[in-house]
Design a protein around this nucleic acid. Structure first.
Length: 841
DNA sequence: GGAGTGTGGTAGC
DNA sequence: GATCGCTACCACACTCC
């Protein structure tokens, strides 16, 4: 066995029931904590406090435990809600919403509970103050709002106004699956148990049937006394909601993993690996360099997410546990992202649907994501690694390669690895596995042999002279870079292991089948040689240095109906992309739009709830005339690609996801001005004329007019002989705002400039094209806008009439306008009234 | 032949 | 209450000039 973490010391039925087991377990953990901090007692301000951490906390759980224990309090490890008869807990430490609605309501509505709920800042500030501060001053915000039952978390409330056109969703494969009206939710593990709650009552058949049959959200479980609220057809998951993208990324484990490496790189300064040339060049080096000992440690947490989550639920340590969104329901399409080795032994695999995992392991316990804990635990690992060497390549949130150079660093490497392992475990309660070898490849494969399910003690060292023999037995799929497709190609050559490759195939065979690079790489790997540029970061799979692209992808929950929906979604994606550019100090000059379109043979709703299902992918790149970090320019680029390339191929309701990939990155040369808090709108005159500070910004409204102009011009191109393919084709745009006489202006007309020049793109002779003023546009309903667009035409420019009045020619009602005008009703109501006033003739 | 573009594969839980 | 199928890189084929 790899470690005590996976031992069965608590098994064997020694307890009368789960409660006894938990009490015993809890005492044991408390004893461990006492022991850990015993020599470090600082005060008694928390004497009498028995605390439990629940949900998300700003202060990480290690710190809370440390502070409370060091200052005279105790930690309760088990969940008070699961054992309501236990009333020892005096304080529940929780900041945020991770607990779920019912529980917060319970804490809010039944304040007579014997424990108080406090924010984690109560712990820190009490310690700082040297006394126990008043708990009432640290009540979580959500508990202050009596009468406000709903929580504004990720799931936004539905928009108040009905959608103009319901989405053309054919429910030929509803998310509820075949279970329909008869789904029983008992029998599966539920962590969210309400304190003092009545025993769960299965929903009455009628309610359950209603929940399964329509858009109703399964609220039948709320009981007969609670009405099932009708739900808008689009539900509460709406990619056009302003907060959707933000919240989506906050909850996406793949986003967390995908962005982690850059976060770590931004946080720590690592040294580059000492270059090691391929064996063919060794003779060119001086003997001292060639003979220098270099070893690599590949360090990887075991069942990372699960191990971390189990700290908050130690009562499940000896049970099959998985991490996923949602609860353990047999018809759930939630994805299992991680599971412990007990669950793996029972057939649960990461990446599978919850329903399938529960079929294999009905007693599976499902825990939520604790992203902050994952992050803080990773930090502990990296801080430990840096004590060994600063030559570190982070691979993921739970994984890194360390290069040890020279006899000093490489001495007693196995012992150092064991100490590292023990030390990380003592700080995190999670085990790492460590592989050691003379190349990143060998270290990586060795680490996979160090995993708990391989019967290892957690550290596997491959002596350099044994590398070739070691690799002989390795299955090809264990070689980094060989995924399902490459493996299938290799199997078509009759190869499953490195030994097969060695005995049956030449390098030429592999190059022919896998391509030049992969063919050579696999052939070398099979012979124990890592032929990548080991001095580069490529060898660790971490890329070759400077960041080359930034991408923002949302391929879940995307169900759009109208052009307005699409615009809002593109705006959200572009805003996020811009934010990431700013955060990393980059500008982009190439925007690639990847669209996921429902495959013609795919059901309208895939098996995975709001997933993308089987799709066709459309990709198109748009190169901007100059580098930018502006959200509106990115949005414009996306919209241009949509209009020019995708719109004719993909109806909006068939979009299942999209990605904005930003390429041609370059560093901002001038120091960015400190991000100022959103300034109050200043008079346009003060900013007019294009002071040139910061990226140009257009309001949504201005941008919309520009886009509409493009459409109109392009529709007229046959007669006018001009075409706007993108901003580069635009000579200039004049935007004028005029007061709408029907609405009394709240700000005097002098507060805005009546005519502001908006340069778009690299214009002929233009000074960079970025001289862009931001007119102060007061609330839209008080003004209408006039736009003149000059399109480049040889050495001159054509002027196009594109004014608000023209935009609504022929429109009698708001519905007429909505058909293709992606702006708020308020705006168009004002424009319509203006048009009526002018007689539209 | 080189640059640019689109597509596909891979890795992490 | 559901559910959060991302990110960054590399390799290769193809087109265009």
């Amino acid at each position: 066995m790899a470690s005590g973490s996976y031992s069965t010391e608590f098994g064997g039925g020694l307890w009368r029931g789960h409660g006894d087991y938990m009490r015993d377990k809890n005492d044991k953990i408390k004893a461990q904590l006492d022991q850990r901090y015993a020599g470090d007692m600082k005060s008694n301000i928390f004497q009498g406090v028995i605390a439990r951490i629940d949900g998300h906390t700003e202060l990480n759980d290690f710190e809370i435990k440390r502070l409370i224990t060091q200052h005279g309090g105790q930690m309760e490890q088990y969940d008070v809600r699961m054992f309501p008869s236990e009333k020892r807990v005096t304080h529940l430490v929780a900041d945020n919403l991770a607990m779920g609605n019912q529980r917060w309501r319970h804490y809010r509505d039944k304040p007579t509970s014997k424990f108080v709920v406090v924010k984690s800042s109560w712990v820190a500030e009490s310690v700082a103050a040297g006394r126990r501060l008043r708990e009432a001053d640290f009540k979580p915000d959500i508990l202050h709002h009596q009468g406000q039952g709903s929580l504004k978390g990720f799931l936004q409330l539905p928009k108040a106004q009905p959608q103009p056109q319901p989405p053309p969703v054919v429910k030929d494969n509803p998310p509820g699956g075949a279970a329909g009206g008869g789904v029983e939710e008992d029998g599966s593990a539920r962590i969210e148990i309400d304190d003092d709650a009545a025993p769960p009552v299965p929903p009455p058949p009628a309610a359950a049937a209603a929940a399964g049959a329509g858009a109703g959200a399964g609220a039948g479980a709320a009981g007969a006394s609670r009405a099932v609220k009708p739900r808008p057809s689009r539900g509460r998951l709406d990619a056009t909601d302003p907060g959707f993208v933000d919240n989506f990324f906050k909850s996406s484990r793949l986003h967390f993993i995908g962005t982690f490496r850059n976060r770590v790189k931004a946080k720590y300064t690592f040294d580059a690996f000492v270059p090691v040339p391929p064996p063919s060049q060794l003779s060119l080096l001086s003997m001292s360099t060639a003979r220098r000992t270099i070893l690599y440690l590949h360090v990887d947490f075991d069942a990372f997410f699960t191990s971390v989550a189990l700290r908050r639920h130690p009562e499940f340590r000896n049970e099959p546990v998985a991490i996923a969104h949602g609860s353990a329901r047999p018809n759930s399409s939630s994805e299992i992202s991680s599971c412990n080795y007990i669950a793996r032994q029972r057939g649960v695999t990461k990446g599978s649907f919850m329903s399938s995992a529960l079929e294999k392991c009905p007693e599976l316990k499902v825990l939520p994501y604790y992203f902050d804990d994952f992050e803080s635990t990773s930090e502990v690992l990296f801080e430990h690694l840096m004590q060994l060497s600063r030559r570190i390549q982070p691979l993921s949130c739970d994984e890194a390669v360390v290069q040890l150079v020279g006899d000093d660093e490489c001495a007693d490497v196995q012992q150092k690895a064991k100490q590292l392992r023990d030390s990380v475990h003592s700080k995190t309660e999670c085990w790492v596995s460590i592989g050691i070898g003379d190349s990143p490849l060998i270290a990586r494969v060795a680490a996979s042999y160090a995993k708990p399910d391989k019967g290892s003690s957690g550290v596997v060292l491959v002596e350099p002279k044994q590398s070739k023999d070691f690799m002989a037995t390795v299955p090809l799929k264990a070689i980094p870079g060989i995924g399902p497709v490459m493996l299938e190609k290799l199997q078509s050559l009759g190869c499953n292991t490195c030994e097969d490759v060695r005995r049956q195939r030449t390098e030429t065979d592999l190059v022919t089948t896998l391509g030049k690079v992969m063919g050579s790489r696999v052939w070398a790997a099979a012979h124990g040689i890592d032929n990548r540029q080991i001095g580069s970061t490529e060898a660790s799979g971490a890329g070759t240095g400077a960041q080359k692209s930034i991408s923002v992808a949302v391929n879940w929950g995307v169900r759009l109906s109208t052009d307005t929906d699409l615009d809002k979604f593109l705006a959200s994606i572009a805003a996020d992309a811009s934010k990431r550019l700013e955060e990393r100090g980059f500008l982009t000059q190439a925007v690639t739009f990847k669209l996921m379109q429902r495959h013609p043979e795919a059901p309208v709703e895939p098996p995975k709830f709001l997933g993308h299902g089987m799709c066709n992918e459309l990709t198109k790149r748009h190169v901007l005339p100059e580098s930018t970090a502006s959200a509106h320019r990115i949005q414009m680029a996306l919209r241009t690609i949509w209009d020019d390339e995708f719109a004719k191929k993909c109806p909006i309701h068939e979009i299942r996801g999209l990605t904005a990939m930003l390429g041609k990155l370059k560093r901002k040369t001038s120091p960015a001005p400190a991000p100022a808090p959103a300034p109050a709108p200043a008079p346009a005159a003060a900013r007019g004329g294009g002071g040139g500070r910061g990226p140009p910004m257009l309001t949504d409204l201005q941008e919309g007019f520009l886009r509409n102009t493009r459409r109109k011009v392009n529709m007229q191109q046959g007669s006018k002989g001009a075409h706007i393919g993108g901003p580069r084709d635009v000579e200039s745009i004049d935007l004028a705002a005029e007061e709408d006489a029907e609405c009394a202006p709240a700000v005097p007309p002098s507060a805005f400039s009546p005519r502001v020049s908006v340069a778009a793109g690299a214009t002929a002779g233009g000074s960079g094209g970025a001289a862009c003023a931001q007119p102060s546009v007061p609330p839209a309903r008080r003004y209408h806008h006039l736009v003149d667009v000059y399109v480049k035409q040889g050495s001159s420019a054509l002027r196009f009439q594109t004014a608000a009045e023209e935009a609504i020619m022929g429109c009698e009602t708001l519905d007429d306008i909505r058909r293709d005008m992606p702006y708020d009703d308020d705006v168009w109501r004002a424009v319509l009234s203006l048009a009526k006033r002018l007689g539209r003739s």
